[in-house]
């Protein structure tokens, strides 16, 4: 919601107001998933894979989202694997030009009885790195910029720890067992989320990939809706749910969870999505990554930004973690387009 006569805000104030659907001086620009690119890594000498495992490098690379790109938030968790590594998953850390990945073909759990959150979960180097990084960022940028943490939801942890196919088959064969596994895995989500809040995170992204490309909207209701509502009660900062792919068939349920915001994919039209959520939550998104940010130029980016602003999307940014080869000029085009759009509106 943008109102005239709002005094200039800091980036932090802008994002937090956007998450609460309160008036803002201009639409906040943020990416609740990842802003890391190879160009940015070179710029601050903080490369993958080390920047996923070293808190100083992680902070340095994450800060470029604000210092170089002009976004209103800083998101230091570039991947979706920090918790899974701490849970004991086998990892492929990759090189500078690819995200680290869990070797899901070598799952660590086969049955619900195997689901155990280790005692050292929060002191494992790959979770501790994030916590330490947030402390660094909070100290350096916390007054001005919204520091967003990330804690993976239990559905995604299920893919990582059981393997995608075994987990999805379990969800069909034995819903009771699946719910029990999710209940146990959610402890990891809560523990890691709380640790990041204590370290200074202003908000948390909760990626939980119950995407329409894999499972039905009915699955979201059956397995995740209540759990996501529970996270709202248990994690005392605004939560941003992230689910890739087609999600319009579950957006109403997501809006009913009470979550602060939903980070939505370009497979969902901005206006259609806004109509579904009916001012119950904020929407963040949804500039297309592979076709627009990665493959096209600033003009195409600008068009998509304007489509979101015209629809009233509360916070604008890429739909998901930015492709690592994305050009910086395409990323700076996002805040530039937002500012231009507001200038045009004011001049009318």
């Amino acid at each position: 919601m943008v109102k005239e006569q709002i005094k200039p805000m800091t980036s932090r104030e802008r994002v937090l107001a956007g998450l609460r659907r309160e008036p803002v001086d201009r639409t906040p620009v943020c990416n609740p998933t990842s802003v890391a690119t190879v160009e940015l890594m070179d710029l601050v000498d903080a490369h993958f894979p080390e920047a996923n495992r070293n808190p100083e490098m992680m902070a340095r690379l994450a800060a470029t989202g604000y210092t170089e790109i002009g976004f209103d938030s800083i998101m230091p968790v570039f991947s979706i694997i920090q918790e899974s590594s701490a849970l004991g998953c086998k990892m492929q850390w990759e090189q500078k030009d690819n995200w680290p990945t869990v070797r899901m073909r070598e799952p660590i759990w086969r049955d619900v009885e195997d689901v155990v959150i280790p005692n050292d979960f929060l002191t494992h180097p790959d979770t501790a790195c994030v916590i330490e990084c947030i402390k660094i960022l909070k100290k350096e940028y916390g007054d001005d910029v919204a520091i967003i943490g990330k804690t993976m939801g239990p559905w995604t942890l299920g893919y990582h720890c059981f393997g995608v196919e075994p987990f999805l088959l379990m969800s069909l064969d034995d819903p009771g067992k699946t719910k029990l596994a999710l209940e146990r895995m959610k402890e990891a989500t809560i523990q890691f989320g709380m640790a990041q809040i204590e370290a200074g995170a202003d908000a948390l992204t909760v990626p939980d990939h119950a995407t329409g490309d894999l499972v039905s909207g009915e699955y979201y209701d059956r397995y995740l809706k209540d759990m996501h509502a529970e996270f709202v009660d248990l994690l005392p900062v605004p939560l941003i749910l992230h689910i890739c792919g087609r999600t319009v068939d579950r957006m109403n349920s997501i809006a009913e969870t009470g979550i602060a915001a939903f980070h939505f994919d370009s497979k969902n039209k901005p206006q259609e999505s806004m109509d579904i959520i009916e001012d119950r939550i904020s929407l963040v998104g949804n500039i297309n990554n592979p076709e627009t940010l990665y493959a096209k130029g600033p003009d195409a980016v600008r068009d998509e930004v304007c489509a979101n602003l015209d629809a009233g999307v509360h916070m604008v940014g890429p739909e998901c973690a930015i492709p690592l080869q994305t050009a910086i000029e395409n990323l700076t085009a996002i805040p530039n387009a937002v500012k231009e759009w507001h200038s045009r509106r004011e001049s009318h």
Partner: peptide, 14 residues
């Protein structure tokens, strides 16, 4: 046509 999703297809594949 989105009448079924991946879990159901995996069961059919099985």
């Amino acid at each position: 046509d989105n009448y079924i999703f991946v879990p159901e297809v995996l069961a059919c594949a099985r």
